[in-house]
């Protein structure tokens, strides 16, 4: 799916991810976690790649493979800075910085590809139940 970077559309993506996760056979709590991870990734794109511009494209692919569910997010904005992708120490209690932590905690694999001329491609993988 392709949506604009307006935060009001995040719920549409969440709804789609939930349905895909259910189709892939994940239990309810795992489905909710996957929704969280993708939502956080998309929120980060809106915030950092597009600096809260609401008219930029974000593509989301959801692919059910034989042993895993793959999410590919592509933006065409400011490329991700590897230093900012590390997440923060949870003992440092302050607003902000939790999105990356959620993504990396929930997903089995997270890869940022900044080799494109513009923007970033984020691939997140979650192994299907019983397949890891």
């Amino acid at each position: 799916m392709k949506i604009l970077s307006n935060p009001k559309f995040l719920r549409i993506a969440r709804s789609s991810v939930l349905q895909v996760a259910q189709l892939a056979g994940f239990a309810d709590d795992a489905c909710q976690s996957l929704v969280t991870a993708v939502d956080e990734a998309m929120s980060n794109i809106i915030r950092y790649a597009y600096q809260m511009r609401t008219d930029q494209p974000i593509t989301l692919q959801c692919i059910i493979e034989s042993d895993h569910l793959k999410f590919i997010l592509r933006d065409f904005g400011t490329q991700a800075d590897p230093e900012s992708l590390k997440g923060r120490d949870l003992d440092d209690i302050r607003p902000g910085g939790l999105g990356i932590h959620f993504i990396k905690s929930i997903m089995d694999s997270v890869e940022y590809d900044t080799s494109h001329d513009i923007g970033t491609e984020l691939t997140m993988i979650k192994y299907l139940p019983g397949k890891k």
């Binding site: 929120s43 302050r94 607003p95 939790l98 999105g99």
Partner: peptide, 12 residues
């Protein structure tokens, strides 16, 4: 549903 922006708001 609550995301990290909701948490950040509550922390603040």
């Amino acid at each position: 549903y609550m995301d990290s922006s909701g948490l950040a708001t509550l922390i603040e």
